[in-house]
Design a protein around this nucleic acid. Structure first.
Length: 388
DNA sequence: AAATACCCCAACCGCAATTGG
DNA sequence: CCCAATTGCGGTTGGGGTATT
């Protein structure tokens, strides 16, 4: 165990990926899905280990990545999430559609940590440095660096720490430009840490439409590991259920009111009732295997985000508000509020992996059953807050 | 202009968890 | 249940770019 077996094999390339390698991997995954990662490099004609391919896809090639610099809102969110979750980068990344754990980790280590220190806040404990020093750094580091689950409720209480008070002026100024509302902020200042606090602080209307996490299984179960099937020129894409669908098929011009397919699409992509994908944008480009239509090495995915964006006012609103929590905290809180919300339009919201989840009421219910995978976290929250 | 220091980030490494035969 | 293969995660590293001397 430990080191991936394929890494022992000779002649495997390491280091930066070349544009040619990127194109090979992208083309392969676009066409067949990744299936078993360890078989991807061979099938894609790459001299890489599967682990390296997976990482490259997740951190760079995935079409739903946002890329570019982090917004102030995103940075604020990361800091707040870090205060609760610690160095659980993947969980933090799950709340920031289009961002990878690696990206967030790098941002934290290179910028955010430093910025907090400059503001007199210990980036490990999120308490004032002076307080941390008084209490002894040892204990603080022990309890925080990699927060055990059992500390979760305690972590939540950190949100009401004195540090917030001492940094109130600058901090509130910052937060007024972020997602936190004055009410939530005031409660935080008052040391409140109850369900209203979380609902007000984290939940946006889009969450209440039933934006629950789903377990992503986009492996192409029918066609995994079958790149040699030359009879199928189809480009099978991945969906939520693990079944593939054919990007060459006319059905790709799909109507979300009749399908429950989840696809990888730019995370900014949202729509109301029906979604007609222009024939000469994404699907066409992804079908074009002979020429590199995606300018990956200029970090340019405008052909995805640009063309795919729905520019209606409502879609813009959705875009602006779909980046919020889809985690157990919100799920728990959402459960108690779902009934108060109007019957949803057909909403497409990014899941934690950047896919798009169409949510009818029925699908919300299905989603909630899937949410059982978070039952452990929910249990902890119940312990922290009591039943809601 | 050259040398050095610093910063950022892509990619690697190793471990733990999960999966499946 | 066992064990090997695989996946996912977080910590770390190293190289390239930029700033400073």
């Amino acid at each position: 165990m430990g080191r991936h077996s394929c890494c022992y094999k000779q002649k495997l390339r390491k280091g930066l990926w070349s544009p040619e390698e990127d194109e090979k991997l992208l083309r392969h995954i676009t066409k067949y899905g990744h299936g078993c990662w360890s078989s991807v490099p061979k099938q894609a004609g790459l001299q890489r280990c599967g682990k390296s391919c997976r990482l490259r896809w997740i951190n760079y090639l995935r079409p739903d990545l946002k890329r570019g610099t982090f917004s102030q809102e995103e940075e604020n969110l990361i800091v707040e999430l870090h205060a609760v979750l610690g160095n659980r980068w993947s969980q933090i990344a799950a709340q920031l559609p289009g961002r990878t754990d690696n990206e967030i980790k790098n941002l934290w280590n290179s910028c955010l940590k430093k910025r907090l220190r400059q503001k007199g806040i210990d980036p490990v404990t999120h308490k004032p440095l002076s307080e941390v020093e008084n209490n002894g750094e040892e204990n603080a580091n022990k309890s925080r660096e990699k927060a055990p689950d059992i500390l979760l409720s305690n972590e939540l209480n950190l949100l009401k720490s004195e540090s917030s008070k001492s940094d109130a002026a600058s901090s509130y100024e910052q937060r007024t430009t972020s997602s936190i509302s004055p009410k939530a902020y005031a409660m935080e200042m008052e040391g409140s840490c109850n369900k209203e606090f979380f609902i007000d602080r984290f939940i946006q209307p889009s969450d209440l439409m039933g934006n629950f996490p789903l377990q992503m299984s986009y492996a192409n179960t029918e066609n995994d590991c079958l790149p040699n099937d030359s009879n199928t020129s189809s480009n099978h894409w991945f969906n939520q259920t693990g079944k593939s669908f054919d990007m060459n098929s006319d059905q790709f011009h799909f109507n979300p009111t009749t399908t429950s397919t989840t696809m990888f699409l730019p995370n900014s992509f949202c729509c109301n009732n029906s979604l007609d994908i222009p024939s000469d944008n994404v699907s066409t480009e992804m079908r074009t295997s002979s020429s590199s239509t995606l300018n990956l090495h200029n970090n340019n995915f405008s052909s995805w985000g640009g063309l795919m964006e729905n520019h209606t006012e409502e879609a813009k609103w959705e875009n602006n508000n779909s980046n919020y929590f889809q985690n157990p905290i919100l799920m728990l809180a959402s459960e108690s509020l779902c009934n108060e919300i109007k019957p949803p339009l057909m909403n497409f919201v990014p899941d934690s992996f950047g896919g798009i989840l169409p949510h009818t009421k029925q699908e919300q219910e299905q989603s909630q059953t899937t949410s059982n995978i978070f039952s452990k976290d929910i249990q902890k929250l119940r312990e922290a807050f009591g039943d809601m």
